[in-house]
Write a protein that binds this DNA or RNA. Structure first.
Lengths: 203, 203
DNA sequence: TGTCAAGAAACGAACGTTCGTTTTATGGTT
DNA sequence: AACCATAAAACGAACGTTCGTTTCTTGACA
C-alpha cells in the first residue's frame, strides 16, 4: 500500500500507540516486548519501526496520554458554575480516578510513569508537564474560592494547590495497592479536616 | 569459607541487598543487571545466587526496606508527648521525605515499588503491608487528636487517616518529578485548609 | 510500471541463570 | 601441635533465551 494519505499514517501511529498502551496496562511497560506490541497491533516489526524508531519512543508517546482524560475532567470541574465546594470537587475527582484506574484504565500506568521519570530525563519532561498542568488547575480553582470569599484574600493559592494536588496520587496509590479507599470516604476525610467555610457555599 | 558463622551469612545477605539497592537507586530496578549487582557487591554470580535464587527475590528483599526508616520516624512523631499539632506533624514528615528521597535515598524507589505491585502479586503483598502500617499510624495519631478534643468524638479516624496518608505519596511524587515543593510550603497549604481547632494545641 | 508501506526473517547483544571447578575455613585424628 | 579429609563458599565462564532492532523481500496502488 504505497502513497497513502496523511491521515492513514496518523491512524497507524495511533493504532500502534493504543496497542502498546493495552499491553503496558496488561503486563507492565518493562514486561511488554516489542513482539507483544506487534501482535496486539496486528502489524509486523518493520511496519511498527517505520513509525517509531525505538521502544522508548512508543513509551513516551503513551506517557503523555496517561492523565489526559483526568485533566480534561478536572478542568471542567474547576470551572463549573456555580462554584463547587471543595469536598464535592475532591469526591468527583476521586471517582474519576477510580474510573480511570479500573481494569483497563490508563491511570494504572501512572506509577510506572513516575518511576520512569526518576531515571529518564525525556520522560521526566512529559510527566513534569502533566503534573504542572494538573497543579495549575488546582491553583485556578483555589483562586476562585479565595475570590468568592471562602478563604482569606492572602491565602497562598499555589501552596494550597500543591497540597491538594498531592491528595490525588496518594488516593490512586491506595486504590491500586489496597483498593479499600472510596471517593465517598475521601470526601468524609476531607470534610472532617477542612474549615467549615470551605464546605458551605452559596446555592 | 565453609562452615561460617550464622551472622556472616546474614551479613552477606545484607551486603547483597545493599549493593542491589545502590544499583536500583542509581539506575532503576529494570535497568540494573545481575552483573551490575555482582560488581557492586564485589561478589561472583555464584556467590550471589547462593543467597538469592532469583533477581526478583533480591527486588522483594529491597522493597520491604524502602519505607522502613519513614515508618519508624513517623511512629515516634505520632506518639510524641505532648501531642504535636497536625501541621507540625505533616511538615516534619515531609522533611523526612525530602531527606530520604535525596540523592541516594531509598524513597526514590517508592514509585517503582508501586508500579511493580500493580503487576506482581508477591511484591504487592510487601507494598500493601507498608502502606497499611503507615496508614494505621495516621489512624492512631488521629485518635489521639480526637481523644484530646480537637476533633469531634464521632470523627471517622480511619477515613481521615487514609486522607492524610494520601498527602505523603503526593508530596513525594512532586519532589521527585519537579522538586519545587518544600515541607514548609506543604505546612502552609495544610494550615490554610484545616480547621483552626486542629492547629492550636495546648502548650 | 515505479514506489513505498508492510511482511518476514534474522541479527548481534545482553539478559538471568546454571554448573563444574577452585579456594578456604573447620574439626576429628594423630 | 600438625595434619588432612571434608564440606561449604565463592568463582566465573558459558548456557539458552529473549530482547530490540535491522535488513531484505513482497505486492498493491498511483
Amino acid at each position: 500500500m504505497p502513497r497513502v494519505s496523511e491521515e492513514h499514517l496518523e491512524r497507524r501511529r495511533r493504532q500502534i500507540v493504543d496497542a502498546a498502551r493495552a499491553c503496558f496496562i496488561r503486563k507492565g511497560v518493562h514486561a511488554t516486548s516489542m513482539q507483544d506490541i506487534f501482535a496486539e497491533a496486528g502489524l509486523s516489526a518493520g511496519a511498527v519501526y517505520r513509525y517509531f524508531k525505538s521502544k522508548n519512543e512508543i513509551i513516551e508517546a503513551n506517557i503523555s496520554t496517561v492523565v489526559g482524560d483526568m485533566h480534561a475532567f478536572f478542568d471542567e470541574l474547576s470551572h463549573a458554575d456555580p462554584l463547587l465546594p471543595l469536598d464535592e470537587v475532591i469526591e468527583q475527582l476521586a471517582a474519576k480516578v477510580v474510573d480511570l484506574s479500573g481494569e483497563n484504565g490508563p491511570l494504572r500506568l501512572a506509577p510506572e510513569a513516575w518511576a520512569l521519570a526518576v531515571h529518564d530525563p525525556e520522560i521526566a519532561t512529559y510527566v513534569a508537564a502533566n503534573v504542572t498542568a494538573l497543579r495549575e488547575t488546582w491553583t485556578a480553582y483555589m483562586s476562585r474560592l479565595v475570590q468568592a470569599g471562602f478563604l482569606p484574600a492572602d491565602t497562598d493559592v499555589v501552596a494550597v494547590g500543591k497540597t491538594l494536588f498531592a491528595v490525588v496520587p496518594g488516593f490512586l496509590v491506595q486504590r491500586l495497592v489496597l483498593g479499600d479507599f472510596s471517593p465517598e470516604e475521601l470526601r468524609r476525610g476531607v470534610r472532617a479536616l477542612t474549615r467549615e467555610s470551605m464546605l458551605t457555599l452559596p446555592t
